[in-house]
Amino acid sequence: MAKDIVLDVKDLKVEFDTYGGVVKAVRGVDFQVERGKTLGIVGESGCGKSVTMQSIMGLIPMPPGRITSGTAKLDGLELLKVSPEKARSIRGKEIGMIFQDPMSSMNPTMKIGKQIAETLIVHRGYSEEKALNEAKRLLDRTKIPEAHKRASQFPFEFSGGMLQRAIIAMALACKPKLLIADEPTTALDVTIQEQILDLLKELQTEDNMSIIMITHDLGVVARMADQVSVMYAGQVIESGSVDEIFYKSSHPYTIGLRQAMPVNDEQNSTKLIPIEGSPPDLFSPPKACAYYARCPYAMEVCNKQDPSYTMIGETHRAKCWMQDARAPKNDDLHQAHL
């Protein structure tokens, strides 16, 4: 059965001109998002997750930004080549977006209801009154108590969790095909995180909406994602289904991330193993494998030639010489899964 792909990104490359030189922030990223499914994108700060999403949204300031290659097709429509005006009409309507810090993501001097209504006025041509009524319904749908009253309050009168609900209501106002959630729970405490993730799942099923969940929290990925792409230094170094990524991690970086994740066991016997070193300088990224300097399994070839993707399963691939057919068998790497 052919997969129903909503967003198909191929070979995306983005650069920024800065005073220090050209930063190659995104260096050839591919991923696909299926309709109604969730893609988790994982990686540490500065690995290009957010820049990738902003490029798709047409939110990269150009200059200094520059998309040097790639395609991003939303249901067949090439997002990277549309006019700014068309890109604007897609944002908020076809693609919704929610952000990390709810407290600063809403206009502090505009009532919540009006901020949600704005989207409907712009994209649906609703009258002010109709849009405001719809905004109240949306707030109610994201389980904000007393939505009627809340709609005429200002952001500072909301708690962080409530505000993130309001932002979700705003992002989903026009029933977008795709929701990009850029670390939506990072700024919230754990119990609220849980509620927000539940809410997102529920709304996703109702609207048959796709979600791209950007995060560095593997716990969130495990809960939410169907597919996962792991990014490092502006590239996807491993991607696959959530089970494949967690139980058959094939790139040393993915393994490193998993080992650095706290595990809740009774004996407290599992040690946290941090990944040593820091990511490479993206002003002059390494020609060969970007993870070479930090990789405990590095081989000679890793510093000479950039690895290509090796298919491990039907949807599972990794960009690592260890997975190459010619590589020596490494029990260590296998051990890491246990």
Binding site: R91, K93, S104, M106, P108, V122
Partner: peptide, 24 residues
Amino acid sequence: DYIRTAKAKGLKASRIFVQHELRN
């Protein structure tokens, strides 16, 4: 951040300026 949100909502530049930037 809220101007980024406004852009992500697909508002016109003129609307962002008048409704969101000016007052703040």
